[in-house]
Computed example of a mutant assay.
Amino acid sequence: MGSRCAEEQEGLSFVAGNATDTSLPSGAYDVVFQKALIHHLPDPAKAFAEAKRLLAPGGTLIVQDRTMEDVRKPGSSEHLRGYFLRSFQNFWPLKNSVAPSRKLLLPLFARSGFLRYQRLN
């Protein structure tokens, strides 16, 4: 779907590859978007460092993923996952092993060279 969408937008492309070693040119991109990625990686800092390498000066890394704080929110109309997790309690051990916490992620951003952080809801 992403590539089909990109065909309709001049100057936009989607590339699938290894998030920790893309082989794309350094400093060539205004935005790097990591969606639902970091909870799959053993070392998210490597993906953040690669994003930093790819970004042009002043570029933006957008990370959209779940954290343990997000996973533990109660169910509501804005957070349907909370209902799911309450109903399927055996899912919790798996979630605890893959969803990083904000407390863990913020130092990884800094070590990768990202000095500003903005959380959007």
Rank of each mutant, 00 (worst) to 15 (best):
K95G: 14
G17W: 02
G11A: 03
H79F: 11
A19K: 01
P107D: 03
P74K: 11
R66C: 12
V32S: 04
T20M: 04
G58Y: 07
Q64W: 10
G58N: 06
R102C: 11
Q89W: 05
L85I: 05
G11V: 03
G75R: 10
P107F: 00
A99E: 15
E7H: 03
T22Q: 07
F84E: 11
L12I: 02
L85M: 13
C5A: 08
P44Q: 06
L41E: 07
F88L: 15
K35L: 08
G59S: 07
L106R: 05
M1G: 13
R116W: 00
K73T: 08
S97M: 09
N96T: 10
L94R: 11
E69P: 01
Q118C: 07
M68L: 15
N96S: 09
Y83M: 13
A56N: 05
L41K: 06
A28K: 04
K103I: 01
R111Y: 00
V15L: 05
E78H: 09
L37I: 12
L105P: 04
A6H: 08
E8R: 10
D70R: 02
C5R: 03
R4T: 09
L12V: 09
G11D: 09
V32K: 03
F91E: 14
R81Y: 14
P25G: 05
L61R: 00
L80H: 15
Q9I: 12
C5I: 08
R116H: 10
F14E: 03
Y83K: 13
S77A: 14
K95V: 14
P25R: 06
T22W: 08
R81C: 08
F48Y: 15
F88T: 11
P74H: 10
G58V: 05
E10Y: 01
R53M: 08
Y29M: 00
A16P: 00
P100F: 11
Q34H: 13
C5V: 06
K52E: 02
S101T: 15
L105R: 02
G17M: 01
M1E: 07
K95N: 15
L80T: 15
F33V: 03
K35D: 12
R119A: 08
A99C: 14
S26D: 15
L85R: 14
S112P: 07
I38T: 10
D65Q: 08
S97G: 11
L55V: 01
Q118E: 14
S97L: 10
